[in-house]
Design a protein around this nucleic acid. Structure first.
Lengths: 105, 105
DNA sequence: AAAGAGTATATCTATTTAGATATATATCTT
DNA sequence: AAGATATATATCTAAATAGATATACTCTTT
């Protein structure tokens, strides 16, 4: 399944978003998205097969985490369209505003 | 339909890509993606309803062009994931490298 | 006004897909 | 080893969707 198709399902986007702050076991993901465990496992399988997440065993749990490569490619796919919403300086400024915060130095 | 769902269909992505260099009438788009006219019109309707394209009449033709707003939002959706493939400086550098070319000044 | 060109819509069908339910597999605990 | 816990898979069903075909609409040309 393409990255776009994998991301087309809202619950799968929720699952990804839940992993932004780190790897999560399935039972935590089940709670977070409020769907049955088999449904969550099925979505996770699709995310896995699309390369969007990786799994790691930890005892009887499986820890799912984000695999950034397909998202990177999505970022690149967007490239030719960026000309439509900004000239060079605006794009740079927007990018700087979007960067994660950090202490002054 | 969500932006993601609209973009999940390969022919719709082809249609969008065909509009990168400017507005195009339906018959040109039909040729470019090699699908029947009704199928193309259907895909264009979905792109329209998702806000990804705009139409303008020109005599008996309809000119379709890219409407960037949803793609912009997709770009913003990606933001929290960018930390996974770069630290701040790398991200900035990558962004600068990605900007459209322009003459020196 | 009639004919033709460009495009949209309606309807049908086959395929895909999300979620439900039941069950299997693997690990841990006692 | 038996039970409990965590997760995956199989099967079914209802809904969504892409493409095919037929037809309607609108503008232009004659």
């Amino acid at each position: 399944m393409s990255t776009f198709a994998a991301l087309a399902e809202p619950n799968r986007r929720l699952l990804l978003e839940a992993m932004i702050d780190g790897a999560k076991p399935v039972n935590q993901l089940v709670e977070l998205i409020g769907q049955s465990q088999p449904v969550v496992s099925k979505h996770l399988r699709i995310l896995r097969e699309s390369g969007l997440v990786s799994v790691e065993r930890n005892g009887q749990q499986r820890l799912y985490s984000i695999n950034p490569q397909p998202l990177r490619e999505l970022d690149q796919w967007l490239q030719p369209y960026r000309q439509f919403w900004a000239d060079r300086l605006d794009a740079l400024e927007a990018h700087l505003n979007n960067l994660p915060e950090e202490e002054d130095r």
